[in-house]
C-alpha cells in the first residue's frame, strides 16, 4: 500500500489544516491540539469541499433548555448544508452507520526512516522520488 508524505510537521502546526491532492483524491489533513486527522474532502451529500468547513464541538441535549457541549469531540461541519462529521471516524452525526466520509491514517515519521526507503512510502504526492527528504526532520504521512 502506498503512503504519502504530506509535509514537515512544523508546516502543520496545531489548529491548522491542509488540503492536498493524493492520487487524484482531495484529502484534508488536520492538526487538532497535536493530534492528526485526515478525511476525504468530498461531502457525501452534494459534494462540497467538506474539509474546508468549521470544526465544532458536539452539542447535545436531553431536553429543551439544557445544552451539553463537549469540546473534546471534534465535528467537522460541511460548509454548505451543515452536515456534521466526526473528525476521527468520518461518521456523520445524524446517520453514523450509513452516511460517512472516508477517514485516513495519519502518522508522523522521521525523515531517516523515509530516507531509508521504507517500503511503499512515496515522498510527496506527484513529486514522488525526486522529493528530497531530510533525515533530521519529521514528516506527516497519510495512508490512503
Amino acid at each position: 500500500m502506498k503512503r504519502y508524505v504530506v509535509c514537515q510537521t512544523h508546516e502543520l502546526p496545531p489548529g491548522t489544516r491542509r488540503i492536498v491532492d493524493i492520487d487524484g483524491r482531495s484529502i484534508g489533513v488536520f492538526n487538532v491540539d497535536g493530534e492528526y486527522y485526515a478525511l476525504r474532502n468530498t461531502c457525501p451529500h452534494q459534494g462540497a469541499a467538506l474539509c474546508t468547513g468549521s470544526l465544532l464541538g458536539e452539542v447535545r441535549s436531553p431536553c429543551p433548555g439544557e445544552y451539553r457541549y463537549d469540546g473534546s469531540r471534534k465535528l467537522l461541519q460541511c460548509p454548505w448544508h451543515g452536515w456534521e462529521f466526526d473528525l476521527t471516524t468520518g461518521q456523520s452525526w445524524f446517520d453514523p452507520a450509513r452516511t460517512r466520509v472516508r477517514p485516513y491514517d495519519v502518522t508522523v515519521e522521521s525523515g531517516r526512516s523515509i530516507a531509508a526507503g521504507r517500503e511503499g512510502v512515496v515522498p510527496g504526492p506527484y513529486v514522488a522520488e525526486t522529493l528530497p527528504v531530510t533525515v533530521d526532520d519529521d514528516y506527516i504521512v497519510v495512508t490512503p
Partner: peptide, 16 residues
C-alpha cells in the same frame, strides 16, 4: 527542502 504538496483551493474544486 521538502516541497509543499499541491493544495486545493478552498473555493474551487478541480473535479467539477
Amino acid at each position: 527542502m521538502v516541497q509543499s504538496p499541491p493544495e486545493t483551493s478552498p473555493r474551487t474544486d478541480s473535479r467539477r
